[in-house]
C-alpha cells in the first residue's frame, strides 16, 4: 500500500466518522443521517454484487439476500429473543449457506442465463416470505426492538440503542463502520490470491481449470461472500426501520445494487461504494424535479454508460487491473 493510499484512507475515515456528523450537527439537516445510513448499507450489498461481477457473473439478485438477512434477524429477535448483535452475523451466515445451495446448480450458467435466474430470486424470496408462517405473511414483522447493549466479557462495547439520545447518529456510525469493514475485506480479497483467482475465472474459466483451479468451488465461495454482505445489509435495515415486509426489498432494489456497481466501476474496489452514493444521493436530490425525476435520472444513467462505460472511477485512474 502506497503513502497516497494510506493518506486517502485516513481522509476518508475522517470524513465519514468526524466531518459528516459535525456538518450535520452544524447544519441541522438530520434527515441526511437517514440518507447516508442507507447509502452505507446499500453499498455493503453492492460490494457483494461487485464481487460476483469479479468472477464474471451478473448478479441481479442481491435484494433476495437482503430480504432473507432482514427476516432472519427479525425472526430471531422477535421469536427467539436473540440479541441483534448476534443476529447480525447469523443473518449473513444464513444467506451464505442458502446461496451455496442456490449457487450449486445456477453458478454453472453464464452470462444472461445466470443473470435471468438471479433476477427471479428476489421475487421467489418475496413470495416465500408471503407464504411462510414464520415470516407472518403480508403483515410482516413489526415492533422489532432496537439493538440492545453489546457487552463482551463484561465490557460494555455498545450501549442500548433505546437509551441513546441520538439513535440516528448511532445507526449512522454502525452502518458506516460495517461499510468500512466490508470494503476493507473486499480490498483484501481482491489483492490477495483469492482475488487473483477470481480474476482468472472472470477472464477465462477453461484456462483457470487447466491450471488446477476448482472453478465450481471458487464461484460458490465468491457468491457466498457476496450473499453474506447482502444479508448483513438487510439485517441492519430491519433494525433501523424496526419492521420488515415481503416488499421491503423488491426486484428494483436488486437491479439498483447492480447499477451501483456499473456506475462506480467494475474494475475498482471502491466502485460500488461511489456508485451507491452517487445514484442514491442523486435520486434524492432529483426529487425537486418532481414528475421528471425518473426521466432525468434515467437519461443521466444512459449518458453515464455511454460516456464512462467503465464507471465513474475510470475518470481518475487509467491503470489496468484491480485498484
Amino acid at each position: 500500500m502506497t503513502k497516497t493510499n494510506l493518506a486517502g484512507i485516513g481522509v476518508f475515515l475522517l470524513v465519514v466518522f468526524v466531518a459528516v456528523p459535525m456538518m450535520i450537527a452544524v447544519s441541522g439537516r438530520w434527515d441526511f443521517y437517514y440518507t447516508l445510513t442507507s447509502v452505507a448499507l446499500l453499498s455493503i450489498g453492492s460490494a457483494g454484487v461487485w464481487l460476483t461481477f469479479y468472477i464474471g457473473r451478473i448478479n441481479i439478485g442481491q435484494g433476495a439476500y437482503a430480504l432473507m438477512g432482514g427476516y432472519v434477524s427479525a425472526v430471531l429477535m422477535t421469536k427467539v429473543g436473540v440479541s441483534f448483535w448476534l443476529t447480525l452475523p447469523l443473518a449473513g451466515l444464513f444467506c451464505a449457506v442458502i446461496s451455496v445451495a442456490i449457487g450449486l446448480p445456477i453458478l454453472r450458467l453464464r452470462g444472461v442465463y445466470f443473470a435471468m435466474i438471479t433476477l427471479v430470486l428476489t421475487e421467489v424470496t418475496r413470495l416465500t416470505a408471503l407464504a411462510l408462517p414464520v415470516t407472518n405473511g403480508a403483515k410482516g414483522i413489526t415492533s422489532i426492538p432496537l439493538p440492545g447493549a453489546l457487552t463482551v466479557f463484561g465490557v460494555p462495547l455498545i450501549p442500548d440503542f433505546a437509551t441513546i439520545e441520538n439513535p440516528k447518529l448511532a445507526f449512522y456510525l454502525l452502518a458506516v463502520t460495517l461499510m468500512v469493514l466490508t470494503y476493507a475485506a473486499l480490498w483484501r480479497i481482491v489483492n490477495s490470491r483469492l482475488g487473483h483467482l477470481c480474476r482468472s475465472l472472470q477472464q477465462n474459466e477453461e484456462l483457470a481449470s487447466s491450471i488446477g483451479v476448482n472453478t465450481a468451488h471458487l464461484r460458490l465461495l465468491a457468491y457466498a461472500i457476496s450473499s453474506f454482505f447482502g444479508g448483513i445489509a438487510g439485517a441492519v435495515f430491519v433494525a433501523i426501520s424496526q419492521s420488515i415486509y415481503p416488499s421491503s426489498f423488491v426486484v428494483t432494489d436488486s437491479v439498483n445494487f447492480m447499477l451501483y456497481c456499473f456506475v462506480g466501476g467494475l474494475g475498482f474496489v471502491m466502485g460500488p461504494m461511489l456508485g451507491t452514493f452517487l445514484l442514491y444521493f442523486g435520486w434524492d436530490l432529483l426529487s425537486v424535479a418532481r414528475e421528471y425525476q425518473l426521466l432525468i435520472y434515467s437519461a443521466a444513467m444512459i449518458a453515464l454508460m455511454l460516456v464512462l462505460p467503465n464507471g465513474v472511477l475510470s475518470l481518475f485512474d487509467r491503470r489496468e487491473g484491480p485498484k
Partner: peptide, 24 residues
C-alpha cells in the same frame, strides 16, 4: 474434473490463444 487431473500433474495448453487477457 480438469482441475483434478491438473493437480495430478497432467496439464494442457490451448489451441486458441487462451490466456488471461487483462493481466500482465
Amino acid at each position: 474434473a480438469p482441475h483434478v487431473v491438473a493437480r495430478m500433474g497432467v496439464v494442457r495448453t490451448f489451441q486458441e490463444t487462451t490466456i488471461f487477457k487483462s493481466m500482465t
